[in-house]
């Protein structure tokens, strides 16, 4: 009975803390969404912010869809994200698996070399010159290839692969399975949570791509979402005189841009959560 009570307290604590965390996260988000739905004048009349809009308008969203380059950049970002994530995940998996095998000759050296790239880089100009030399400049591939493998994600995935129980490899060896088959039929299916996690990391990396796009691409038709959104967000920060010719985006419009830009990544998340179910796969293989 004593144990039961402490268990219940434990539960109460868990729910209370989680509820608090959710509230702390949701209140400012409500602010973002509400601001995007309220005319700017109303926002100001309310003292600069709104949590529950009393008059809703979709003008800002309409403006974004009709008067800005947002819709097309959305398409570019979607393409870059889908292709980039598949490519990166593939390459990362192919590297992480051998590196997770402690028997691999030269493993330490390769890992050190990879880690080194996280700390040192040649800088903006040599990288640009390289991208120019290999002919990627001003193509979508300039947004995909120069960061195809993230050393961070690679090390994480390798670490996940390392924590797989050694027995499954022993069993596979006895089966005479080829390395390629071990990877695709055993390691990958058993590591779905980590693959999905790294996949999500890559997805967000590609979706949030900004600086590379600005640097390597100059055709406006190829600009991804964040470039357009950034223009909308940063225009007010400039003290230039452009406001004579341009109508500066209001907070309402900025918030709407933020909502549109982050919605896809948010909507994708619930589908990903499914794969975090505890021990599902280990259980599957043992049973």
């Amino acid at each position: 009975m004593v144990r039961g009570r402490s268990e219940r307290w434990f539960d109460v604590m868990v729910y209370a803390v989680l509820l608090f965390a959710a509230l702390v996260a949701v209140v400012p988000l409500m602010f973002v969404v509400s601001m995007s739905l309220t005319p700017y004048g109303e926002v100001l009349r309310n003292g600069g912010y709104v949590f529950i809009p009393n008059s809703v308008t979709f003008d800002a969203y309409q403006y974004l869809l009709e008067r800005t380059k947002l819709p097309r950049s959305f398409g570019v970002s979607a393409f870059v994200t889908v292709v980039g994530t598949s490519l990166s995940l593939m390459l990362t998996m192919l590297m992480a698996y051998p590196l997770s095998r402690r028997k691999l000759k030269g493993r330490s050296l390769i890992l050190l070399l990879i880690l080194f790239t996280m700390l040192f880089n040649g800088g903006l100009i040599p990288t640009y010159l390289l991208v120019q030399k290999v002919g990627l400049l001003n193509t979508v591939w300039a947004m995909l290839i120069p960061n195809a493998v993230s050393a961070f994600n690679l090390l994480i995935m390798k670490s996940f692969f390392e924590s797989l129980p050694e027995e499954i490899f022993e069993a596979a060896k006895i089966d005479g399975a080829k390395e390629w088959r071990i990877l695709t039929t055993i390691v990958a299916p058993l590591s779905v949570p980590s693959l999905v996690t790294i996949g999500l990391f890559y997805m967000v990396q590609y979706w949030n791509l900004y600086f590379q796009a600005v640097l390597y691409v100059q055709d406006a038709a190829l600009y991804p979402l964040q470039v357009v959104v950034r223009n909308i967000l940063m225009m007010n920060q400039s003290m230039d005189d452009i406001n004579v010719d341009v109508t500066l985006p209001t907070v309402t419009l900025q918030m709407a841009a933020v909502v549109v830009a982050s919605l896809p990544m948010i909507m994708v998340y619930p589908f990903i959560q499914k794969y975090f179910i505890k021990g599902m796969l280990i259980g599957a293989i043992k049973g």
């Binding site: 001003n138 299916p189 055709d219």
Partner: peptide, 22 residues
Amino acid sequence: CSILLAVSLLAACSGNATPGGS
């Protein structure tokens, strides 16, 4: 997993079809 592989290969092949050009 194999679909994932196929998708990325396909994407790599269809490269020339994407908008671009210097």
